[in-house]
Computed example of a mutant assay.
Amino acid sequence: MRGFRWPPPPDGGPRTWGPGPGGPRTGRPALPEPETELVATPHGVRLERLVTGTGDQVTVFAHGLGNGIATTRPFGSGVSGRKVFFQFRGHGRSDTPPGPWTYLDLARDLRAMADLCGATRAFGASLGAGALCRLLVESPARFERLVFFLPAALDRPRGEVARSRLAALVEAVEGGDASAVAEVVSAELPPAVRNTPAGWAYLRQRIDQLLRDGLAAGLASLPEQAPLRDADALAAVTAPALVIGCAGDDLHPVDVAERLAAALPRATLHVYDRPGVLWTDRADLRERISTFLDA
């Protein structure tokens, strides 16, 4: 397997060594990030937001831990209507209120974004899926359709792999070391993608955003918490739900997706056979999400 290295070659494209072509390659840079806005919420925390699309249907998208608007937008690329992307507290330009923070705090962030835009559909990835679960315990009838992508925790805290990965990311970002950040972020990519133009573009975008906006230290305690005390609390949720998991994903164990689907009365479970689905099965994932939400 060809390895990963940082910084990128000076010509802007990945270089490989060993068997195979060794000449310079061109890789398109990441697209410029769209202009976002800071929005005041009823609970006093300003959150960064991006609204795209048009129409009466509104879907709110909640990102994963250490991620944000840029990494969540691909999930909504095929969804109709208006799409509301935002950054949880401690991410991007959103406020960093005094901690410690809990999933209830994240649920308030999500609820505020949904209410301000009149969202009737919700998508949650990883941490966002946990925040969505916590919101639904308080308001089980809040949304008409739900998508949970790679839920990371339900009624038990995340495992040691997730805790150590986040701790390493927070430390690298706080130190301002692009190489250290790249080493941690590169683990998000399937090995076959890491030394490709698309992989480099993704890394550049993620590193630029993380080093520009930072990552709040208060996020480090979230993997030690569980969104819910008891998964049975979701029994009152009657909205149709799609739960998506991936076999072999150490950060998002497939059994969490299975237990979440079992706890939701009207859930459909789909499990991909390998991790890195945004890279390996992007078209299928996009169609699956959009078809479900637009039904």
Score class of each variant (00 low, 15 high):
residue 76 G to D: 08
residue 66 G to M: 08
residue 92 G to H: 11
residue 98 P to W: 04
residue 16 T to F: 00
residue 63 H to E: 01
residue 99 G to Q: 04
residue 17 W to V: 13
residue 76 G to K: 06
residue 79 V to P: 02
residue 95 D to P: 08
residue 26 T to A: 12
residue 48 E to W: 06
residue 72 T to I: 08
residue 42 P to L: 11
residue 34 P to Q: 09
residue 101 W to K: 12
residue 83 K to R: 15
residue 82 R to T: 13
residue 37 E to V: 10
residue 19 P to Y: 04
residue 84 V to N: 00
residue 58 V to N: 07
residue 4 F to Q: 02
residue 45 V to I: 11
residue 59 T to D: 13
residue 69 I to M: 10
residue 45 V to P: 01
residue 67 N to W: 00
residue 70 A to Y: 07
residue 66 G to F: 03
residue 98 P to Y: 00
residue 84 V to D: 01
residue 41 T to V: 03
residue 28 R to S: 14
residue 86 F to V: 08
residue 91 H to T: 10
residue 45 V to K: 05
residue 62 A to W: 12
residue 99 G to H: 03
residue 25 R to H: 09
residue 98 P to V: 06
residue 97 P to A: 06
residue 82 R to Y: 12
residue 58 V to I: 04
residue 22 G to F: 03
residue 86 F to M: 01
residue 34 P to N: 11
residue 77 S to K: 08
residue 53 G to N: 10
residue 98 P to S: 09
residue 61 F to P: 05
residue 68 G to I: 00
residue 101 W to F: 04
residue 51 V to P: 06
residue 53 G to H: 07
residue 95 D to A: 15
residue 60 V to F: 13
residue 18 G to Q: 05
residue 55 G to V: 11
residue 4 F to G: 06
residue 32 P to V: 04
residue 84 V to L: 02
residue 8 P to D: 02
residue 25 R to T: 15
residue 83 K to G: 04
residue 12 G to A: 00
residue 103 Y to L: 09
residue 28 R to F: 12
